[in-house]
């Protein structure tokens, strides 16, 4: 409404007066407006302006000169996506890793929070929380460095497995593609399970103690209390987080995979985000990379909106 008043041509007197009073109001909050508009300016400069570059997905741009001078090619790059032999592998890796992370990694923080809640010593509870949050704050470069050294031929994993007599020859884990998914999923769980549990721990903390007392009086054991008191009380939190996790299924952990991937394990490690990076920056196919990135961004947007509307409907509360 206010925006309309701003652009209206002042034809009659009442409008004129209204316009002056709006201007006066605007002037009155000029400090606030400058503060807000600086944020808007940032968004325009660093978020909206780069979107102009998306046009190169419809052009043949090779990185030199101005984008507007590059020749138009229409949908050519998008058609090329369907003929790209790498595409199947890249999508399979993205969805495979994401779905397995979801399947295995999603329940673990919940189970962890449930058992943490049953600890009798609050002090010990705090200590365990502090320790398990820690890996979340370490970078993937450091963890990648540890993993690469542990998984090497003379690394901890081979040493332990050979010591136990489980394998006879050392295995080059990161050079054999079939181990890659397991490595990525296990290390991601190791890094994030404690942190992901925070939200459940908070949800559990807000459960009324009376519920537990009542359950105990009714003769419920520890597992029954978990099953019939704790779990139902955090069901809402679980479903929201699950929906949002499904919504971001196309986003693989770029930082993690970029550190751990190499040319030998490429067939199992190349995911969409990595592919967009490599064909764009390393091979210089700017236009094609932008086309793949755009399609991925649009599908991801659709999934996120879908997930958001689902969680809105379920809990009358959503992220945004």
């Amino acid at each position: 409404m206010e925006a309309n008043a701003e652009v209206q041509v002042p034809a009659r007197k009442p409008d004129n007066r209204r316009r002056t009073s709006l201007l006066r109001k605007f002037y009155g909050q000029r400090y606030l407006q400058v503060m807000a508009l600086l944020g808007v300016a940032w968004m325009l400069l660093f978020h909206y302006a780069p979107m102009y570059g998306i046009v190169i997905a419809f052009k043949q741009y090779i990185g030199i000169g101005e984008i507007k001078n590059a020749p138009w090619v229409g949908w050519e790059h998008f058609k090329a996506i369907f003929e790209d032999d790498m595409m199947f592998q890249v999508i399979r890796n993205t969805l495979g890793i994401s779905l397995l992370k979801l399947l295995i990694g999603f329940p673990i923080p919940i189970v962890f929070a449930l058992f943490l809640n049953e600890l009798r010593s609050l002090r010990f509870n705090r200590i365990v929380q502090t320790i398990t949050y820690l890996p979340h704050f370490l970078s993937w470069v450091i963890l990648g460095g540890i993993l690469i050294s542990w998984l090497a031929d003379v690394g901890v994993v081979n040493d332990v497995l050979m010591g136990l007599g489980l394998i006879k020859e050392p295995i080059f884990y990161l050079s054999e593609p079939q181990y890659f998914w397991a490595i990525v999923i296990a290390s991601d769980i190791w890094k994030e399970f404690g942190w992901s549990a925070i939200i459940y721990i908070a949800a559990i903390a807000s459960i009324s103690p009376e519920l537990y007392e009542a359950a105990t009086i009714d003769g419920a054991g520890r597992f029954q209390r978990m099953r019939y008191v704790t779990l139902p009380s955090i069901k809402g939190t679980i479903s929201i987080l699950f929906i949002l996790a499904v919504g971001s299924i196309l986003n693989s952990n770029f930082d993690q995979i970029l550190v751990l991937k190499n040319q030998v394990n490429e067939s199992m490690s190349s995911v969409i985000d990595i592919y967009v990076y490599e064909i764009g920056i390393k091979q210089g196919r700017f236009s094609y990379s932008a086309a793949v990135g755009l399609v991925k961004g649009l599908i991801a947007l659709f999934l996120l909106l879908l997930a958001n509307s689902f969680s809105k409907r379920m809990n009358q509360s959503s992220l945004f």
Binding site: V40, A49, P50, G63, V276, G280, A290, G293, L298, L301
Partner: peptide, 20 residues
């Protein structure tokens, strides 16, 4: 609204790179 859009969609890697 302008801010919320930034949460859902951003320019792909290469357009962003070119802009910077």
């Amino acid at each position: 609204v302008m801010g919320t859009v930034t949460l859902f969609f951003s320019a792909p890697l290469i357009p962003n790179y070119l802009w910077l």
